[in-house]
Design a protein around this nucleic acid. Sequence first.
DNA 1: AAATTGTTTAGAATCATTCTAAATGTATTG
DNA 2: CAATACATTTAGAATGATTCTAAACAATTT
Lengths: 148, 148
Amino acid sequence: MKYNKNRKNREKLAISQIQSAGMRLTPQRLALAKRLFSGPDRHITAEELHSELKYADVRISLATVYNTLNRFTNAGLLREFFVDSNQSYFDTNTEPHHHFFYEELGKFVDVPINNLNIEFLTSPPKGTQVDSVEVFIKLSKVDSSNKK
Amino acid sequence: MKYNKNRKNREKLAISQIQSAGMRLTPQRLALAKRLFSGPDRHITAEELHSELKYADVRISLATVYNTLNRFTNAGLLREFFVDSNQSYFDTNTEPHHHFFYEELGKFVDVPINNLNIEFLTSPPKGTQVDSVEVFIKLSKVDSSNKK
DNA sequence: AAATTGTTTAGAATCATTCTAAATGTATTG
DNA sequence: CAATACATTTAGAATGATTCTAAACAATTT
Ligand SMILES: [Mn+2]
Ligand SMILES: [Mn+2]
Ligand SMILES: [Zn+2]
Ligand SMILES: [Zn+2]
């Protein structure tokens, strides 16, 4: 039965992520890791994850969600990013990439790094090196009233 | 005397910005507007502005700094942006542009829009339109130990 | 199984920001 | 140039996301 095999594999992946961060395996961490690391990449806040877990009847305190997200981030399993001043988002995709932001939905979608070609027409300032280049593209539903 | 003429011009610019936002001219707003709108573009937090003003012996409450920055932002004179979860930054440059971020200094420098050429190798999702494209480039001091 | 070490938790603390309501300032009117 | 209306400033309280504290609990080592 393929269904149970996938379930097992997702669990294994989650466990290996926790252990790769040098953290003990606990039910709370496993529940978080499964939601974060099995399935498509996510862009999510601590509060959102906490409600997801509550909805799934996983008992976990908000403090533990924060602790775990921060430790995953320090271990390089997540990346934290910021789009408004009152909440942090965590990105499960830690490779260099860009983002579409759907304004109406408030949702992010990854843009693979080689979907964009960025050409510097002026070189970066002397004495500096470029550590990262991130593009943030705001999208909205097509507005057909925008006729030329 | 050129010095006093520049001073007067900066004041006039500040006044016209306040009035273009449909706001009454007050000493607090004038002090803020002068520091924001005369001189090179800035990327600054409310607290930073508040200390600058305190240092210059301008008496203004932090609440007024926040109120004014928010009203300037709503009027399109400033743009708010976010780089960490605990403070908002305000950008005096409201035209589309990109940013260098000097990691060691925690400072931002504008990159004119046509210093970068961005080519989409895949078109944006059907039914959506691109509202803005912003590039954020992290810079650090050259690390000569990075030899190939 | 005792001892050690790591984890979770509730609730308190922190801190940027917003809100409240009273005092003060600016504009308008007669 | 009062009197009134309306806008702004302010101190301090409230809010809300995040972090901290310290006690209970769980996992690991001996
Ligand atoms: Mn953090
Ligand atoms: Mn704001
Ligand atoms: Zn992403
Ligand atoms: Zn800028």
